[in-house]
Write a protein that binds this DNA or RNA. Structure first.
Length: 293
DNA sequence: CGCCAGGTTAGAG
DNA sequence: CTCTAACATGGC
């Protein structure tokens, strides 16, 4: 079987990161089997199925289906590097967090836990919209139906592996078909609007990557359905800005409330104030606060 | 049953 | 610029 490897950064706990990847039993975009994760991607018009697991200090990538041509290998390795955030040196974050009351214990408990990214911007924005104003369990139910219905599929050894639906296909979907999956009218409209923006070339990860943080955020928020929370979520999970974080996030507020033993949730101003201490590492501060829940 | 959920928008003040 | 109602439905 064709394989390749990727170097691992020092602070990297594969088991902790797998924990994140198994948080919903309804996930169709990857499959965790024991101590490895299997995922399907499309590159160069070809479906490539691969598995990832750590072997003696490196990540071992096994190509299970699809030609591991040089181009495909590069694409998959780049994807995995972004997915698992293999290029961030967490040392400065851990040094800062060790002095912080809220983060101190969390970074000790979850050392090596990383932000599992969403390298695909269309997937990232669509997933964020699905998660808006509903609980995560239901968001996964909606995503499950959406991917199962509209994503391409590959059978391999008795299991199905899915690709996230293509923007062009989603843009052409009717309101009714999405409502039948229990999307609200609002989610249906937002998802189709985002898909249209990708399909007609108005929005692309490549283009937004050229822009500075604030400018990229402004451009993202021009899309109907993408507010401050969603834009920051994408900047954090897809563009990997270490200073991006979803200020309005309900889970983040609950984490702060719990750890600070408050009787109410913090106001946006209080969250802003707290996060001044985390300047430059807001994304990772958010990750560890989320993990505390 | 009631409250809340990984929010956003349009409209009012 | 800030504040608020409406959206819409499952999970616990």
């Amino acid at each position: 079987m064709p394989t390749t490897t990727l170097p691992l950064p020092e602070a990297f706990d594969f088991s902790l990161n797998l924990e994140f990847l198994t948080r919903s039993p309804r996930e169709l975009l990857h499959r965790v089997e024991g101590h490895r994760v299997i995922k399907l991607l499309k590159t160069g018009g070809e479906k490539v199925l691969f598995s990832v697991r750590p072997v003696s200090g490196r990540l071992l990538i096994e190509f299970l289906h699809g030609a591991p041509s040089p181009e495909n290998r590069i694409y998959i390795k780049k994807y995995i590097t972004e997915w698992f955030d293999l290029q961030t040196d967490l040392t400065p974050f851990y040094q800062m967090a060790a002095k912080d009351k809220l983060l101190k214990d969390l970074i000790a408990r979850f050392y090596g836990y990383r932000i599992i990214g969403l390298p695909d911007l269309f997937e990232s924005l669509t997933w964020a919209v699905l998660g808006q104003q509903i609980n995560l369990a239901f968001a996964y139910t909606l995503k499950h139906r959406f991917v199962e219905q509209f994503g391409e599929r590959l059978f391999y050894k008795g299991e199905s592996y899915y690709l996230f639906p293509e923007p062009a296909l989603v843009a052409g979907l009717s309101d009714e078909v999405l409502l039948s999956l229990q999307f609200s009218r609002q989610k249906s409209l937002y998802v189709r609007t985002i898909a249209e923006a990708f399909a007609n070339g108005d929005v692309s990860k490549e283009r937004l990557s050229q822009l500075a943080f604030e400018e990229a955020k402004v451009q993202l928020m021009k899309i109907k359905g993408v507010g401050n929370w969603t834009a920051n979520y994408a900047l954090m999970k897809t563009f990997r800005y270490p200073n991006a974080f979803p200020l309005e996030d309900a889970g983040l507020h609950n984490a702060i409330k719990k750890l600070s033993r408050m009787s109410r949730k913090p106001t946006l101003e209080e969250v802003r104030k707290l996060f001044e201490k985390y300047k430059g590492w807001e994304a990772y501060a958010t990750l560890y606060l989320w993990k505390s829940l």
